[in-house]
């Protein structure tokens, strides 16, 4: 992915800033100009809390180019407490301890590096909640 492609997405990637439809209340991490539920175009930025729970998870032993140095790593669909699902990696977990329903929180980590000379891509990941509610 090119420098501008990554740069453009930083608000969402670095701090989980998404959107909320001002008409029907639907939220998502990915910005959209038209609400997929009610088709309103009245969409505003929305900051997610970063808290959620694991909806599903998978540990990869075969990875796409650029991610092979991290094998094995665990990815998940995380149900944010505000409602939407987010696709993300889990971090600071022992792969055999991950469970559906587990409470997780967002952290900002390295997603990948474009070699030793290229861009370092940072973004959200989720880890088990460090300190209670």
């Amino acid at each position: 992915m090119s420098l501008p492609q990554n740069w453009r997405r930083q608000a969402g990637r670095y701090r989980l800033q998404g959107i909320k439809c001002q008409n029907c209340g639907r939220m998502s991490l990915a910005p959209r100009s038209i609400c997929p539920r009610c088709h309103s175009t009245d969409i505003a930025p929305h900051q997610f809390s970063g808290k959620g729970e694991i909806y599903s998870h998978s540990t990869l032993y075969q990875a796409p180019a650029g991610y092979q140095a991290y094998i094995p790593y665990t990815v998940a669909l995380v149900r944010l407490e505000e409602g939407p699902l987010v696709s993300a990696q889990l971090t600071d977990v022992d792969t055999d301890q991950v469970q559906i329903g587990q409470k997780v929180e967002m952290v900002t980590r390295k997603l990948r590096e474009y070699g030793d000379e290229g861009l370092i891509v940072y973004g959200y990941k989720f880890r088990p909640v460090l300190k209670g509610e």
Partner: peptide, 17 residues
């Protein structure tokens, strides 16, 4: 690409989820 693949989520992994 910008919300799944960038997370290192392969196509197999999506099916696995």
């Amino acid at each position: 690409a910008e919300f799944e693949a960038v997370q290192g989520i392969s196509f197999v992994a999506l099916n696995a989820l």
